[in-house]
Design a protein around this nucleic acid. Sequence first.
DNA 1: CCATCTATTGGCGGATCCGCCAATTTCCAA
DNA 2: TTGGAAATTGGCGGATCCGCCAATAGATGG
Lengths: 207, 207
Amino acid sequence: MPAPIRLLLVDDHPVMRAGMANVLGLDPDFEVVAQADDGETALGLWDRHRPDVTLLDISMGGMDGIDTLRRIRQDHPSARVLILTSSDANEDVRLALKVGACGYVTKNVRASELAEAIRTIHAGGRILSEELKRKLTEDEGARHLTSREIEVLGLVRQGFTNDEIGRLLGISERTARAHMGTILEKLNASDRAAAVARGFETGILKA
Amino acid sequence: MPAPIRLLLVDDHPVMRAGMANVLGLDPDFEVVAQADDGETALGLWDRHRPDVTLLDISMGGMDGIDTLRRIRQDHPSARVLILTSSDANEDVRLALKVGACGYVTKNVRASELAEAIRTIHAGGRILSEELKRKLTEDEGARHLTSREIEVLGLVRQGFTNDEIGRLLGISERTARAHMGTILEKLNASDRAAAVARGFETGILKA
DNA sequence: CCATCTATTGGCGGATCCGCCAATTTCCAA
DNA sequence: TTGGAAATTGGCGGATCCGCCAATAGATGG
């Protein structure tokens, strides 16, 4: 029997971690070597245990999963991380893959599929459900916003006018307007209210 | 030893259900008599098993938790239901309590606290964390929207103008505008973009 | 039965938005 | 080096928004 796959679980829901530890711990292929309920702790535990695969939630208090993943991959580019989260927002999926996740599955995955995904990841493969792939490609036409545009959208969300946005960013009102125009086009929105809605729908904006 | 508290688990995350079954099943005070991953199934299982306490998630595919709760309480007003969900949106909490939930805890609750909450519920008590209470009361000033206003906000979210909203609802543009004014005031928003954002933040609007 | 809330509609005016046209500079990648 | 995207700014005009004022009818709940 080969050595078990050593796992680090990172999720801020204790009951969820218990579930993961349970369904995976019963399988001799896996060994849960550590658990964390926030990103900071996760970084420390990763260093100490060097797990084969890390299961990482995205929405966590404090440092979120994306930042945690970024930090892990920065220190250890070979780290293999599987995102296990409830969000299916395009922006989360896109960012996670961009920052180096080896796979992304949502929490409504069945236990057997989760186990299979981990094995695939450990074997050097990548995992992305057909549904998420489809969502990503169908929204490919909607190119993602630049950081400046996200900045503007964040202010629009707070109810600032183009003029105010210009002053806040140290640019002219006319420029804020130009960004707004690009945002509307990229998000396929007819006005700023719809743009904010699309922001939440895609995960660019978070509650 | 008294008879164990008979539980029905409803959550569309299999791993989460495994976690609940695990942390609760080890305690002789509890017995998990059934599990469901959607509202329809939950209704049938409730009828068949008559659990003492139901643990119910809000965000589920198909019929959501609020509707499920409504249906359960409608048929069996004495049913005791504890909401166990990841959302801490005011609107979810408010609606759940209004529709008859006996308690509301978020998924980052510790296992021991969850067990204690279930015991309290079973004993006829109610559970609402101090944090959620605080959030609810601090937003009390922001009265909740009427169904008509929510309808309007839903159209605003899609980018419709007041004029279009009027036509879609069979009312005058001026009336749509009046609703808009009330929405802005109630949500404390300065324009429709901010109103949409507040809608997502409070849980009135969902991605 | 009365007070309150809700839904409805009207006028008026200044503020703001968004579309269409065009231009410059910077910076990155092929 | 060169093509391209990003950020910046300008003018112009019609469409839309939002605030302030006021009024009526129906429903709801004390």
